[in-house]
Amino acid sequence: MFHILTMIKLKKRPERMSFMNKNVIRSITAIAVLFCLLWLIGLGWAVGEYYAGKPEKVPEAKTVSKKVENKKGLTIVALGDSLTRGTGDETGKGYVGDLIDEIKDKTKRPVQLTNLGIIGQRSEQLRSQVQETEVGRQIQKADIVLVTIGGNDLFRGGQGLSDFKTDEIATIEKKYLDNLKFIFDQIRKYNSNANVFFIGLYNPFIELDQGKEMSKVVRQWNYDSAEVSAIYPKIVFVPTFDLFELRVNDYLYSDKFHPNSKGYRLIAERVASLLTW
């Protein structure tokens, strides 16, 4: 009954007559109806699944897969706190980035870096981080492991300045050393071959009033950390205290706590000189 309209349309555009026959229209309509039904089923399923679907227990990956990739490059894993992250470095690289640049200059092998540093991380947080399955897998693949930890345990965002004389610092240090042992145990468990470089602490407050006393605490802290590192094979304690001893403000960022680009450069150079291949 609507053929009149159709005729008008077709008369206006006669060139379409040839291919726009009824069967084409009919089959397109049929396909459209099919898809319409299919999407309707999908919609119903989505709603049903969202509300009625029962949760399944999704198996958790507990074991570190033993499959080590066939690798030609050098794999570096960096663990730790804001120093690993590079906080305060205008270029954003941190000592890890600087170190990678140096390595790339010296070797032609491709370098793969996994930077797992988390700003503000303390030793107990790193302790739980190294227990994660995936972190373990990363360590397992590594040729070099870089660690910075302890700065936030000791200084606690500046709070360390006020209570370093009390007995509390002894308890904090004991806990820290305990965590450190655990972390090293874990790293050696995953990977007994990689060289581990543990970066020591410097004293950012050395030029303040109580700087000298604080330095004493930091030296003790570093000494104990070095002792712990020495228990394990191929864990090298890298001192940074001396780097920042003179003219500390030249090497500190405006927060007077993190190193600036120059400070990171110093740390990177020191670690670079220790690398072997």
Partner: peptide
């Protein structure tokens, strides 16, 4: 299929 259903809606 569920995504398609929702997009269709």
């Amino acid at each position: 299929l569920m995504d398609f259903g929702l997009v269709w809606f």
